[in-house]
Write a protein that binds this DNA or RNA. Structure first.
Lengths: 347, 347
DNA sequence: TTGTATGCGTTATCAC
DNA sequence: GTGATAACGCATACAA
């Protein structure tokens, strides 16, 4: 029933398999994992049978050490419970499965300053690559630390893919936040809106900044403008959106339309409106950014800028597996598409 | 600037640090990682300084091999984009961070039959533990395969925590699906509903089955009953809920209340109702199960059975870190709490 | 307190 | 085609 060779009970190693099959370690290794050297068909079958019978699973750690390369990819997100990140992660996971790669997940829980630390942990794992998802920050020191961490990882032969801004010389999926927000601003103006406010997210996040600037551009080009004191900052979360909207309501600026720079905030903002007796979209129009899956089920339908989140995750993994040893950084641009829904009816 | 010893460029090893600091490998090891043996303060400082300067990060794989234990925990979910799983995962991640553990994520993407395979991959990683989240199935063969995989993992010293049903002799967070659904059924009956239908999820999932049975119990005890032909099965997804509801509508049974056995399905069902001109809750009451975070923002508010999802994730990780070597399996029961919202007004 | 030597499980480089 | 054996990077038992 149990392996006969009574070493540390239960841990079946390649040596166990080799012994049981009556072959050398080398042969067992070659028989199980496709080496360039071929192994006699009879032996290979015997070894495979023994391995199956003993429930042998190769020690991936040892393999990684011996081979000098691993099948683990690190994935860094800001918050795995946030649908933005979980959708991207789903894309990553699917692609990982296709390529038989394993994903080690790390979440900063929106403590942006800790990214370097988390990356260092991933670096310790000696994975073949890391995928860094989420906005970069404006913090000089933190960014420098990140650059350092990323540098030592790449110099050690690791591959890095970033999803957000191109802040480092690594493969990057650039989200065209500015352009997307510009298009949205333009569209909203076309719909007849003139008096805008913005829930702008955390000022230190480049994504938040870019979307705000893009939106400003978009409405300015169309001849509109932001109300004075109409930009409220706050965390990139549902509750952050709620709080920011509450603050905005308190300022009593009477905007016609509020742009929350991501959907999660927009959803929170809509809740704040409900709680303050503001009926959407009659009393106020709202728009977001990302098109998270949640939006399918909220009322009124939220106008937003659609990002192909799952695809972005898959694309990131694609950049990992197609990476050339000495290749220079590649950039893939992802453009957002404005989706107009009931939350911003034409005026 | 770069390490002087020109081995495989960029890969700083402990040997590099030791050489640069002019100490032995053993001393360097002891200085950096808290060994029981103490090291002279001067040396420890020197080694630490060199390590920092060279940007040394210990090779976790090598450490794991040498120590015979690893700091990696495998996490298996059915679909990381599903808010049920992403919330639990968030709890796991937070606890992981506190204990300085790394999490390797695997997603079956709801191909329930592939769990054993995925577990085998995790087993290959030689992590210290695995957390298996999500319903077990009724499939005898698949379950036997799982038992086998889990067995070899535990016999090799790995720890396993399951979140769902107690199908294996491992630490388990048992979700009291039956009791929760029973309470819900009772509550809905109390509210005056009599003619029920159920969107029952995939018949092979124990969670789906238990919730259906519990609900049946609950309404039976209160003197009610299910309509004939009022149980529609379907995938545990938003679209599954949509399809199941559409089917139910086609059957034209005129139920007063529909219980979708999880919130994700319920949300899809609500969308189907909208698309078919059924106004909620006027024309039909709807209830779900789980209390996923999405519910905060859908209208009408969905009556459901609340599960402390994040806490469950954290608890799972807690069972991992508090595991005793020879300890017998522990069981933690999680009871759902009925939350009545606008989707099921009193009749 | 510090250093030397061995082992962890596997692959790869040699011989045969 | 098959079998010894030296790495891989680190921890630790044993020596000093």
């Amino acid at each position: 029933m149990r392996p006969l060779n009574g070493e540390r009970a239960g841990v079946v190693t390649l040596a166990d398999v080799a012994a049981e099959a009556g072959v050398s370690l080398a042969t067992a290794s070659r028989a199980l994992n496709g080496s360039s050297r071929r192994v006699g068909e009879d032996l290979r079958l015997r070894v495979a049978e023994v391995a199956r019978r003993l429930n042998y699973a190769p020690n991936a750690q040892a393999q990684a050490m011996a081979r000098g390369r691993s099948d683990v990819v690190g994935l860094l997100v800001h918050d795995i419970a946030d649908p933005y990140f979980s959708s991207i992660a789903a894309g990553v996971m699917q692609a990982a499965e296709e390529h038989r790669l394993l994903v080690t997940l790390v979440s900063t829980q929106r403590r942006y300053g800790t990214e370097a630390e988390h990356i260092a942990m991933l670096r310790g794992q000696r994975g073949r690559a890391m995928i860094l998802v989420g906005s970069r920050t404006r913090d000089r020191d933190a960014t420098e630390l990140l650059r350092q961490e990323i540098g030592t990882f790449t110099e050690a032969g690791g591959h890095v893919v970033a999803v957000s801004q191109r802040s480092f010389p690594v493969d990057t999926i650039v989200v065209e936040n500015r352009a997307g927000a510009r298009l949205l601003g333009h569209e909203l103006t076309t719909l007849g809106y003139e008096r805008f406010a913005v829930l702008a997210g955390p000022p230190e996040l480049l994504t938040a900044r870019d979307r705000l600037q893009g939106f400003r551009d978009g409405i300015a080009r169309a001849g509109g403008g932001l109300l004075p004191a109409a930009v409220v900052t706050g965390p990139f979360t549902r509750d952050g959106g709620y709080a920011a909207m509450t603050e905005l309501i308190a300022r009593d600026l009477q905007p016609q339309c509020v742009f929350a720079v991501n959907d999660v905030m927009a959803v929170g903002a809509m809740a704040a409106c409900r709680d303050h007796g503001i009926e959407l979209p009659r009393d106020l129009a709202v728009a977001g950014f990302d098109d998270i899956s949640t939006l399918r089920d909220i009322t009124p339908g939220l106008t937003t800028v659609r990002l192909p989140l799952e695809q972005m995750g898959a694309l990131a993994m694609d950049l990992v597996v197609t990476a050339e040893p000495g290749g220079s950084p590649r950039v893939r641009r992802v453009r957002g598409e404005v989706v107009v829904r009931a939350s911003t009816p034409a005026r």
